[in-house]
Design a binder for these strands. Structure first.
Lengths: 259, 259
DNA sequence: GTCACTATGTGCGGTATCGCACATATCCCA
DNA sequence: TGGGATATGTGCGATACCGCACATAGTGAC
């Protein structure tokens, strides 16, 4: 698996690829952009450990970052993911300086890094930037809550579908580079269970995969096999972040009624 | 089961019994307190449905409110609880106006109601009130995340312990008025499973109960039987809300090391 | 092309929890 | 004081998932 990205790509990544950065008012952008630092993330890179002070916040453009809770016995589970629609490091403006989750890059790609204090300053002084950040935070909360319920009630088959859709929304194209082992870690289940669920999907012609490379062939069917959790979260995310690009990837979800 | 509260109690409830109201700066209290309205909640009272616009926020003093996600098939699970340490209705200041969870009174008691706009106004104009509310919100997020992981990895026995401790922290005394049916609904498991788990605890002499009345006899043992999730959440809550009264109820938790 | 490594496939016994059915106990109220 | 409602206890088969062991198949490095 190649985690390395061609150097040429780097120059094509713009701050405004991240939807929060893009949504900030012009003056805020003017003050922040000079301090942004482009970073390349390899898969598996840990950006924060649980309890770490957040010196930087990160704005993904084409990578995916997972927020993971790990327990004493090593068992873990992802509680939410962050991509181009969001920001990693909400504790920077929520006032807590740290969180009890670890942040880990699930999918290689790029992000912009900003000293936490700079964002905090804008958060405190620009009500419009504040609103954008808080609404995003609320959508993150919605995602976490739905994940909790999904963990409790839905089968691994359904959760895998949710997870694939979640990832797909945050990546260009229809390919996801991720091993079943990693997916299992994120869902908090056995690798073998993922193998089995993925096998079923491949058999049905929904996806195709080989050694850490998944291609989604039939997205509508994937949405149908998925539990409602995906649609609920997405709907709430779109409501709270009106410029969210995920609207373009709605697919069948458009037809799902409000809960 | 008596959900009715003696009229005399009502007059003893003060706004400052709620820790957030108590923590607000004097000027903020001066502006808000005249608009507070004391409410009596009976068990099972629904304060918000998922998606409801939040016209009011609620500050519990001696009741417990659960945030519950309900799914299409009727299955549900609690993602967090709110008591005297917090506020119900964070969407009022997060900017979303509504959330996708239902809020339901788990334990009868009192709370103070405030028009959402009043709080929003203070949130926007008083940075100190804002900080208090945001830090509380972050502790709520921590609670949700840990609940999600707990759902995934821990046994019902452990989760029941967590749940009892969570409730105990928000109530005066050592008695919890709640049926096993309701607890099962909150944990998102069968009522029979709760019966079995509660039976074990009673057998061990940790609790005593009869028809919806649970008395905790041996709290230290309860903490020992519990998964780490309770302690992790509590620790984070105390870190983020320094005046939190739960410190007084620490028990064994004081000895648990940082994750 | 070969080799070591990593990713995936498969089988099997164990167990926590479910769903259901029904018995029993306790409480409240007529 | 009894009867209906509600809360709790118990048993049993079904099943989703786990933990482990090991087989197989791509893939990159040399």
């Amino acid at each position: 698996m190649s985690n390395k990205l061609p150097q040429a790509v780097t120059s094509l990544v713009k701050p405004t690829d991240n939807e929060l950065l893009a949504a900030f008012p012009g003056e805020v952008q003017g003050r922040l952009f000079p301090h942004l630092e482009l970073c390349t993330l390899e898969m598996g890179k840990v950006l924060y450990e649980a309890g770490d002070a957040m010196r930087y916040v990160y704005f993904p453009t084409d990578c995916i970052i997972a927020l993971v809770y790990e327990m004493e016995d090593g068992a873990s589970a992802e509680i939410s993911v962050v991509g181009l629609e969001g920001i990693l490091g909400i504790a920077a403006f929520m006032g807590g300086e740290s969180t009890s989750s670890r942040a880990i890059a699930l999918h290689a790609g790029h992000c912009f890094r900003l000293p936490a204090q700079r964002l905090q300053h804008e958060f405190n002084n620009d009500s419009s930037a504040r609103m954008i950040l808080l609404r995003y935070t609320q959508s993150l909360i919605a995602q976490m809550g739905q994940t909790a319920v999904c963990n409790r009630h839905h089968t691994i088959d359904q959760q895998l579908c949710r997870w694939l859709l979640l990832s797909l929304d945050r990546l260009p194209g229809d390919k996801i580079s991720m091993t079943q082992e990693l997916i299992a870690n994120m869902l908090g289940v056995r690798r073998e269970s993922v193998t089995e669920a993925a096998g079923k999907l491949q058999h049905r012609g929904v996806i195709r995969y080989q050694r850490g490379r998944i291609t989604v062939i039939d997205r509508p069917q994937l949405e149908e096999l998925c539990c409602e959790c995906y649609a609920v979260v997405k709907k709430e995310s779109i409501r709270l972040n009106p410029n969210n690009s995920m609207q373009k990837k709605l697919g069948y979800v458009q037809n799902i009624t409000t809960i």
